[in-house]
Design a binder for these strands. Sequence first.
DNA 1: ACGCCCTCCTGTTGGC
DNA 2: TGCCAACAGGAGGGCG
Length: 282
Amino acid sequence: MPELPEVETIRAGLTPLVVGREIRELHIHHPRLRWVIPAEQLTKETVGQTIRAIKRRGKYLLLACGSGHILIHLGMSGRLQRVVANAPNAPHDHVVWLLDDGYQLRLNDPRRFGAVLWVEGEWRDHFLLAKLGPEPLETDFHAEYLHQQTRNRRIAIKHLLMNGAVVVGVGNIYASEALFLAKVHPALLAKELSKTQCAALVVAVKQVLNAAIAQGGTTLRDYRQSNGQPGYFAIELQVYGRAQKPCLTCATPIQSYVSGQRSTFYCPLCQPRPPEIEEMLR
DNA sequence: ACGCCCTCCTGTTGGC
DNA sequence: TGCCAACAGGAGGGCG
């Protein structure tokens, strides 16, 4: 599934291939994604226009075009690929942009959790983007900020990290990994975190995301580049998906639990929980 | 304002 | 070997 590093890789990979290209045709084979694709509006606003840039905000992609932006989210299973125009349609190729150079841009999304929308004017005001928190790799995501965000919050720190209003781009997998790196238990209530722990967590989030980007946006499951080539080495997951396997630091068996219908993994020795919290959960 | 839970969807996995 | 249920998961939206 594409997380922030994969989306960033797709953005960087597609930029030299499609920026400067004119959209000749738009074909929507399946309009019902997360939201119904506004086919008429997209056609009117973008066909005949040139793609000027590809931007990213969290896991959203924004194609600057005409008087606004094409907003794309890949959901869980979305792939955005540039293919030759005469390539046969594959199952789940829901949206196809025909470009002026003999190539197509295709959105393939089996589970249809993705989105394609039109954003007129200033994209930061769009309802999906307006309330998003800072980018995790920017300087405004820092220890003081996270500490302030955690005050008085009776929510598990892992859930807080996955809240896009707090910080964007940290999904289920990277949340577990970052908490392991920071030696913070995932079930710890946000308000219980010290400034030191917040600082460690900020560093850990940046570290795990940067490592994934450096490896070309490795996905933790099966992933292919935007040009269709198989690729990248899996990043070395420390805890995610490793229940009962030995911790790579201390050899203690990795534990897992489900919370909010999301699986969570941690090392009980490396990520200790204060005794009073342990008592509460008993 | 906050926390909890539901929903969308289908490929994959595991049990019998 | 084959069938089918459970599962995974981003994130908006509704509700208390």
